[in-house]
Every structure is written in C-alpha cells, then in structure tokens.
Design a protein around this nucleic acid. Sequence first.
RNA 1: GGCUCAUUCGUCUAUUGGUUAGGACGUCAGGUUUUCAUCCUGGAAAGAGGGGUUCGAUUCCCCUAUGAGCUACCA
Length: 510
Amino acid sequence: MFTPVRVRFAPSPTGPIHLGGIRTALYNYLFAKKNGGRFILRMEDTDQKRYIRNAESHILESLKWCGIVPDEGIGFGGPFSPYYQSKRGYIYRFYLNQLLQNGYAYYAFDLDQDLDQKRTDFQKHGIFFSYNYKTRMNFNNSLTMTKKKLAIKLKDQNPYVVRFKMNPGEQLKIHDIIRGNIEMNTNYLDDKILLKSNGTATYHLANTIDDHLMKITHVIRGEEWISSMFFHILLYRSFGWNPPYFAHLPLILKKNGKGKMSKRNYEETIDPIFPIKWMDPNTKKMIPGYRELGYLPESFINMLALLGWNPGGNQEIFSLKELEQSFSLEKIQKSGVLFNMKKMVWFNRRYLNRNKEKVFTFLCKELKKRSIFHRYKKNYLYRVIDLTIDRIHFIHEIWDHSFYFFIDPYYYDQQYLLYNHEKYQYFLHQLEKLHNLLFSVTPFTLDNLKIVFQDKVDKNMWKIYMKLMRLSLVGVFKGVDIMIILEMIGKKQSMNRIKKLINEINTKTI
RNA sequence: GGCUCAUUCGUCUAUUGGUUAGGACGUCAGGUUUUCAUCCUGGAAAGAGGGGUUCGAUUCCCCUAUGAGCUACCA
C-alpha cells in the first residue's frame, strides 16, 4: 500500500537556529514537496533546563524568512497535535509503561553522586564507564531488587529514572538512504535513560513515539544522530512498530573545518551563522543574521541547498520551485562541508538582478529619508537601478553607488586634489571651459553630448576632462559612464556641480 | 580510550571500472569599460598513502593516516 511521505523538522528551542538547522529543515521540506508529502514542524522542548525564551520565535521567524512553510505542526495545526513535546508527557508515560511491563525498560534509583563516583573509579583504571549490560547489576535498580522493595521505593516517592534494557550481543545492520548499510553491535550500546527523574521523557523516547504517532515516513537529520539511530531502532522494535527510513546529512563544519558548526560559535567568527538576527540573552548583544546583512532569502536558500547536495549537472542557480522538483536524498553528499562565504556573496549578487523591486523599494526609502523622493519618476529610479545593479552585492549598497543621480557629491577625492594642488589654476581654467561647453549642448541628450565632446574636445584633453567631470559629478573616481550621468541629471545640475567644484578648489588655499 | 561515519582542485561539487578527471566560487594573467565595478578570454589548481581484485581503478575490497560525530537525567 502506498503511504504518503511525511517528514518533520524537530528543533529544540535551546538557542537560535543556524545554517545547519535551516539546511536540515530545507532538505526535509524539499523532500516532502518533491514527493507530494507533508512537512511537519514539531518542537522538541523536552529539556526544560536548557529552554531559552526567544529561541522558538527565532526558529519560526527564520523558517518564515527562508520561505520554508510547514504543512502541519506549530502554527499550522494538524491531526496530531499538540506538536510541542512538553505538552505530550501523558502520551510518553502511557507508552513507557508498555516498555516497563514487557521488560524492555527498568527503574533505576541511582544517585548522581554514586554514578559520578563509579565514573571516576573506572577512569582510574583506564576504563570508560558505561551503564550497560555489564554494569547494570551492580546498581540500585529494579533488576537488582525484589518486587516488594521496588513497590516500596516507588510508593515512598524515591526519585528514579527509567532506563532502556539494552540486550547485548546483537549485530544490527541499518540502512541509511545516504550512507548505505551501517552496522553496530549492541554490546557497545548503553542503557539509555528514557524518563528523567523530573518525570519528563528524554529526547530519544519522545522522538521515537512522536515519529511513530505522527506517521513520519522518513527521518532526515544531521549526522550527529547516527549513533543514536540504533537505539531508536531498538525502541521501535520494543514497541512493535516499524521504523521509518533514515537519512543522515553531512555536517556543516566550522570555518576551519575543525568541529561542527554550532549556535555557540558565533563569537569566534565574523561570518554570520544565523539566518536572522539573534539577541544573546546573557550579553544582550545583537548578532545580525543574513537577513540583516542584506542577503536575500532566495540566495541564502540556494547556497544552502547546494551545500551537500547537487542534482548532477552544472546548474547553480535554483529557485525554490526548481529545488522542489529536482531534489533527491540519494544525491546528498556523505562528507562534512564548509560554508563558502565568498560564494554566498556571489549568489546574492546573482539574485539581486532577479529582485530589482526589492532594490527599488530600498532606494525609495533612501530618497524619502532625504525628502527628495517626490522629485523622481519610477522610470528614472529603475533606470538608475539598471545602471548600477551590477556594482552592488547587497541591497543596502545601492545608495553608495547611485547617490550621484540624486544629490551633489558630499565629498571630493581629497587625495587627488591634494596631490595635484599645483595644478589648481589649470583645473579651474579647464573647469570653466567645461562649464561653457556643457552650456552649449542643446538639447542636452546623450547623443548630443557625445557629438559635442567628439567635435570640440581635443583627443588628448579627454582624459583630464573626464577626470574633472567625474570629480564634479560624483566626487570620486567611480561610477557609471560620465556621459550617461550628464544626461540623467540634466544640464542645470551638471553645470551646477561643475561650479561647485570650482568653488571647492577656490576655497582651498595652498 | 571505545564505537561509528567520512576522505576528488583552497572551497562546493561532476564523473562512479577505460575521461586530456568537467563545472562553480575564489585566485592569477590579459582584454573591454578614457574611472571604478561589471563583463569577456585565458592560466594555475584535485582523486590522502599503501596494498589487493582487474587487461585497466578516482570508481570495488583491505590496511594505514587524517578528519568528524557519538560516548549526559542535552538535543
């Protein structure tokens, strides 16, 4: 029978979401879309101690910014609510009792200090301590006490945890969609805690039960979960459930390639790791995200999609729709990856060209800020954007590269003026000539300007004229073609700016 | 320490038994732009090492090395 694909992204609200989390969410989302399935968002908030207040909204807002929209779950409803694990305690207790009754789990009353003592004792002998089939009979648990004593302990409300009773000696062979078969002997697995002494389920228990109850068909998550996969499989088996398919993604490594990227790394690197801004609750410091730094969500997603996955060809630019069509788990890479910041910038530049409206909106804001918005027509603004968009990498850079279409230079290349101060008289003379020359151009069109300069300006004077004009119009030696600037800002403005530079030079007494 | 996973240019990757090992970012060199950016052309740059299997291995197997993950009453 055909079972519809159901995948989930299940973050834990213990901090801000970073690149890696977004990529995991993205791959889940793409897989669901590709297969006509559903993408579920579940909050794995079983650890109340590590709960961080604004983490959940950071995750939700980040996903929203990226355009990764769940079909079901937090904020989207669905038949399997609640989608917060903190609200599903009664469910976990119910299933845990099954495990207890069937002998797959047991109560353990060991105190923290006893366990710590054991750990250090073992370490002294050079052995790593593990609560497992070898050691469990030396501890204070329901396997080592009479039923009567257990009943008394429970009745007296002694704090306890529930542990999974791991059966040794079995060679497990699990298929991972990305990695193929992975083997593990249960001898190496320990008696993991299922229920903490505060009465809440651990991740392992909650995750397994929820994935089953929510009919998750494919578990797509980071490589750090490979080790736990075997334990999870055994849990499914103990419940008598069929496990889902597994796909473990390669990790996104820190910039130096040493260790996986973590939400705690943001202070070690100037490169952003969060999609949107995050305020450190301790230092109250605001860490900007890709959104704040001027990256477009489309380029961010495109970059992330290709970080560990590639459909096989040479195409690099993919819209979300295209990604949805071509995504497949089999094409995911096995080894850890590094995030290439320069390529991210390149992607952003490519996407700017496809999002001129956003640049337009930003430019309008800049003009309104200066109360000069009303002076310009939409066509003019789009012309400016067309002329300058290739020069910018981020939306907010547009003003620095286009201000001279709107306002006089507020700064002149001082270096150039100082360096040539002995030529001031000469400059002034030429600027006057330029001023007159522009005055003679009627009408002030691009064609006419070109003709006038060609006819009336001596070839070997071009260079100095262009320099002086650029200095007058832009203030510095950058920007689009001088003739185009002249035409765009018009005769009056152009001549004014030349006068302004003349004044500037005149006031410089050297 | 134990277990598990990984290993193609600096980075992301294609090719997966027979290729001059391809592309992209970056980098370098030229050209266009009488500025700057863009753009164009070109170059340098890789199969971790060692054994097998095979007529032939980057591709399959083994070992070694290196890296990573896990080894919590974190997820």
